[in-house]
Amino acid sequence: MDAGIDYPQGRRSGRCEACKPRLISGDVALLEHTKFALSPEERTNGLILACRAQRQADACGAWLGGDDETAEHPCQTLRCRVAQLEDATRDIKRVVLEVVDVPPLAYSAGQYVRVTFPEALTRDYSMAACPDSGVLEFHVRRTGGGATSERVAMALSLGDEVTVDGRTAPRFYARNMPGRSW
């Protein structure tokens, strides 16, 4: 991200798991993060949370689903429409999308996609519906000053068009920049 790479990430807090690549080479120090975001087994298997990793040396990594991993589902970009909107809690909006013109997206539970709501910045969200439900469901937490979450909470309407991008990202390489995040 410091180098301008369009990197999947949520809030850079080590909670959303959107930035979990496999470290191919190099060394990183992991900053504080929530325990559920990276299990000891995942860490043993070479996974890191890039948003909470500080490079100790030049490093190379691959996103899950990239060249060094097996992708379970084809990459797709979908045009969707907002089918349902409801307040799940005072700060969480439940957004259900129906896919327009193509078959629904094949995905696994917990997988995330890149979502572009109208007049909002693109963000990564995990699907909240069962993979075989035929719809895409997201729970968007409203955060103070959050450009996208504020837009979803205050201006998203039934029928609005939304783009969902299920592409995987390529391998990346980052040079060590002392004091900078991955």
Rank of each mutant, 00 (worst) to 15 (best):
D27I: 02
R81D: 04
A147M: 15
D91M: 10
T89M: 07
E69Q: 14
V28T: 03
C16S: 02
Q111C: 05
Q9T: 00
Y125F: 01
E42T: 01
E86N: 10
T163I: 15
C51L: 02
T116V: 14
G144E: 08
V162E: 05
D91Y: 11
M177F: 13
C60T: 14
N45L: 13
P103I: 04
E69L: 14
G159N: 01
L23K: 08
G4K: 07
G26K: 03
L23N: 04
Q56Y: 11
R81N: 08
L49D: 02
M177S: 14
E137W: 08
V82G: 01
V162K: 03
A50E: 07
G166F: 04
I5K: 00
Q56E: 12
D58T: 01
A147S: 13
R43Q: 10
E41W: 14
D67T: 06
P178W: 02
A169K: 13
P178F: 02
V100S: 06
G4Q: 06
T122C: 02
R171S: 08
F138E: 00
T116P: 04
A174N: 05
C60F: 06
E119P: 01
A147W: 00
T89W: 11
A29R: 15
N45I: 13
Q56F: 12
L38Q: 05
C75R: 12
V95Y: 10
Y7G: 04
K93C: 11
G144A: 11
P178L: 02
Q84F: 12
A53S: 13
F172Q: 00
A50V: 10
V100R: 06
A88P: 09
I48C: 08
V102H: 13
T163D: 08
R151M: 09
A106V: 03
L136A: 07
Q84M: 09
S25M: 07
C130Y: 09
E150G: 08
V95R: 08
A83G: 07
A3Y: 00
P8C: 06
A57L: 10
T89D: 07
Y173S: 13
A57R: 09
P8S: 05
L23A: 11
S39H: 05
G146K: 03
Y112K: 05
E137M: 15
G145A: 03
G179R: 06
Q54Y: 03
I24Q: 08
P8E: 05
R94N: 14
V164T: 11
R90A: 15
L38Y: 02
G159S: 02
L30S: 08
D132T: 15
A50K: 00
S25C: 07
H33K: 07
L64Q: 08
V152Y: 07
E42A: 07
R142D: 02
L47G: 09
L47F: 15
F36H: 15
G46T: 06
F172H: 02
R167S: 10
A57C: 14
G110N: 03
T163S: 09
A53G: 06
R180T: 13
V102D: 07
E72V: 10
C51Q: 01
P178S: 09
G110A: 01
Y125S: 00
R141Y: 05
A83W: 08
R81K: 11
S25V: 00
E150W: 04
P104M: 04
R81A: 12
T70Q: 13
Y107E: 03
A29H: 15
